[in-house]
Structures are given as structure tokens and as C-alpha cells.
Design a binder for these strands. Structure first.
Lengths: 225, 225
DNA sequence: TTCTTTTTTTAGACGCGACTAATCTTTATA
DNA sequence: TATAAAGATTAGTCGCGTCTAAAAAAAGAA
């Protein structure tokens, strides 16, 4: 794995985020990166030579397999860092993002593994965004469980684990059915119970039970990422 | 505080370490930085313009007050990071140094404060090197107490707190007198007792008592710093 | 379709931080 | 003290990543 500059990593990350199914426009990259279009064109030439992007003059750009891999690594770093800074180090929402934005380029594989482990291999960051795995897989947005949601977050139940029919009945009784809106009020530490509010009424449920309730965020994408 | 490049920070750190009482030679900087002498001369010109060093052609270089301040900040980052990586994150000695070497340039004031606090405001890093304070003070090498020494380290008792005569008598009975060599064998977590070896015999002492025994390392300066 | 507007690229420049080769200065040695 | 060796600086180049101004290509409107 060759050494890439921070600038290169930032461009790849920006292109990844702009890239839906199609190709990305030079001007769009210039805007989110806050540089001139000429700078972007210049960089795209270099990225093309490095085979990280596929750029055709006047036709937009797209990440190659290698480029996508790098972008996902950086995004993984970012989201793991945000989770770590918030959960373990007590950073605020605003400080968290800026710090992760810088550190994501400078942590080692080793560091990444340690924080992943210390966090219990989380699948989503504090915003609810999925954390790419080491081999570049991104969890489906509905693979986050209620047990992982942070206090203050509002989520919608997506589906419920169908392993145990007793459990299903309990969840049904508790009103934790697909499409119900849930507001996580409090979380006891050390895998203790979770207090949720549904239709204004509070309810305390065990962490174990919560880990069988798969949820989605109400607003999948927002400002910071 | 203006933004400095990583290169500038690295030069200042190198000069700080080479600088005893006198001035530092271009070639010496080139050697530790692993760059050509011409590159050093070139950088010294820029550092002089920034008023971070005081450089006279053919006469060596010396840090200014501002330059020293920056160097100490970076060294503080490095030593706090090494301590954090080792104590909290479980890094090995070898990984610790390399990681701190990169991260020292990229952590915020906020991050620095958090890890300082999480570590209980340590005065020395795991090597036993003093950690500069935020305002650039460096603890005397003999202000580290036995309570702060890591298992495996060998230290020499420098002096003993003279607050309490009962304590002094206890320490005398335990053989913890100035110039005695002490090998820390084990440390119980959560401020539990410490096992030390002296003249081959092991002895268990309370953490509170150990915090009144001021020690110095046998080899004040070694490879990594 | 032709003209206009928007988007993108090219051309040329600049600061940073490195390099090599050549040219001083200073220091050491005969 | 003259000369050789060691140390430091200058001169000139290069790649990175940015910029502005100008030209070219694509897209939209009359």
C-alpha cells in the first residue's frame, strides 16, 4: 500500500461522497473542497495517472476499485474516530467532527484496530452512519440495533430479529414494531437497560432485547459525515 | 498561533534536542532529519524569517523563545501521546513511538487536554522522560515518584518527601533511601500496591507511600524520546 | 441551427520542501 | 603560515498543490 498525501485522500473522499451511480463534475468537487476548478482538473490528472480515478476530459470522473478502497478506508477511520472521541473521550458533537477530520489521515492500522476493539466493533457512528468494514463492506443502513443508538437519538424500527417467538411477542407487547418511532432517553452503562420514549410514554427495556430490534435513522444523511 | 507545517515542527524539535547550551551545526540537523545539508540551510533561512530560530551563516543556529515554545509543545504532545497509547490503549513500546511521532503534529488543544486529564496529569512518560507543561515548564528529572514508575523499570531513589517523620521512618526501614536501586516488578491497578525488588528481595508497598518517594531513571536519556 | 452561457481545461506562476553539483568559509594539519 | 579537509551556502532543478487569466468544449436558448 503506497503512501498517499492528505490532499489525495481528501479528493478521493470528496469524490466518493458526491458519486452516486454516475460520474462527478469538476465544479462539484471544487465546491466541496473549496479550491478552484483548475486545481481540481490538475489533481484529477494525477489521480488518473495513479489509477485511483477514471477521468475523461469534459466527461466527469469516477473512482476506480483502488480509489474506492482508499475512500472507504478514510471514511472508516473518520467514523471510528468520531465514535471513539465521543464515547470514550467525551468530545462534543462539534469538536468531534473537526478532530476526526484531521486524525483520519494519520492513524495506523494498529490504532484503527485498537479503537475498533475498545468500542466493541461498532457498525455505526454516533450520527447513525454505517462504519465500513476493513474489507470495504458497508453495513445496510438497517443493521443498526436499538442497543447501539445513543441517548437523544430518534429512530424508526425497521425490523425485528425473528429468532425467538417469545421475544417477538414481548416486543409486540412493548409496541416495538416496524415503523414505530422510538426516542432513546437514557442508556445505563455496562450493558444495562435502555429507557425509550414511544408516543410520549417511557419504557425501560433490557439491552439484550434491544439488540434484536433493528432500526433506521429518521434522517439518513445530514451535515457532518 | 499561526499554522505551522509538519516539516517546520520537526526541524524545531530536532534543533531543540540537539541544542545544549550552545548553537547547533547544520550537518547535525541534516543527520538526524535524514536530509541534505542544503535542505537544512534552506529551511533555516525560512525559520529565521519566521523568527523561530536565530541563524548566522557558518555560525550555527539556536531556537528563539517562540521556537522553543513550539518545540516544547510538540514534545509535550509526543510524550502525552506515548503515555496514552501505552497506558490506555495497550500499545507496545515499538508501536507507541512511531504512532506518537505522527500524531503529535495533528492533535488539537482539546485532545491534548482530554488525554492529560484521562492520564491524571502525568509528569513523566513511560520512558521516564519529563512531560513539559502547557506553559513550557519541564519538571525536574527528580520530580517523578515511585508511584508513577511502570513495571519493569529500574530507578534510583533521589529523595524522599520530608513531610511526615513516621513515613520517613517507615521508608528507612523499607530501605527506600536516596541512591538505592529499585526495580518495579508489579503494579496493582486502581491505585493498589506496588511490588518492588531491592537487592534481590521483593517488597510490597502501598501506592500512597510510593508517591512520597522521588526517583530518577538510571539512564536519563536513551534512543527514543 | 446559431449564438450565448456555463463548464472545463490549458497556460503560466508561485511557495514549499526536497535534491545535486558547485562554490565558498572555516578549521585542522603539515 | 600555507594547504588540505571538513562544513556550510549558493545555484539551479523538481514534484506537489495551489492560484488567476485565457482558451476551448459542451449545453442551453432563440
Amino acid at each position: 500500500m503506497r503512501m498517499l498525501s492528505q490532499a489525495v485522500e481528501d479528493y478521493l473522499k470528496a469524490i466518493y461522497k458526491l458519486q452516486g451511480d454516475g460520474r462527478v463534475a469538476t465544479n462539484d468537487i471544487a465546491q466541496v473542497m473549496e479550491v478552484s476548478s483548475a486545481s481540481v482538473t490538475n489533481m484529477l490528472k494525477r489521480l488518473t495517472k495513479m489509477e485511483l480515478v477514471d477521468h475523461a476530459s469534459y466527461k466527469g470522473v469516477r473512482l476506480t476499485g483502488a480509489g474506492t478502497k482508499v475512500a472507504l478506508e478514510i471514511i472508516r477511520h473518520h467514523r471510528l474516530l468520531e465514535t471513539y472521541l465521543k464515547e470514550i473521550m467525551g468530545f462534543s458533537w462539534s469538536e468531534m467532527h473537526a478532530e476526526a477530520e484531521r486524525l483520519e489521515h494519520h492513524i495506523s492500522e494498529e490504532f484503527e484496530e485498537r479503537i475498533d476493539e475498545m468500542l466493541g466493533f461498532p457498525t455505526h457512528d454516533p450520527h447513525g452512519h454505517p462504519i465500513p468494514t476493513k474489507d470495504g463492506q458497508i453495513a445496510d443502513s438497517a443493521t443498526q440495533t436499538l442497543a447501539e443508538v445513543e441517548p437523544g437519538e430518534r429512530v424508526v424500527v425497521h425490523h425485528v430479529s425473528d429468532a425467538d417467538s417469545d421475544l417477538l411477542e414481548y416486543l409486540e407487547g412493548a409496541g416495538l414494531l416496524p415503523n414505530s418511532r422510538v426516542h432513546v432517553v437514557e442508556k445505563e452503562p455496562f450493558n444495562g437497560p435502555i429507557t425509550v420514549a414511544m408516543d410520549g410514554a417511557e419504557r425501560v427495556i433490557g439491552r439484550e432485547v434491544a439488540s434484536h430490534v433493528f432500526v433506521a435513522h429518521e434522517r439518513p444523511f445530514e451535515a457532518g459525515a
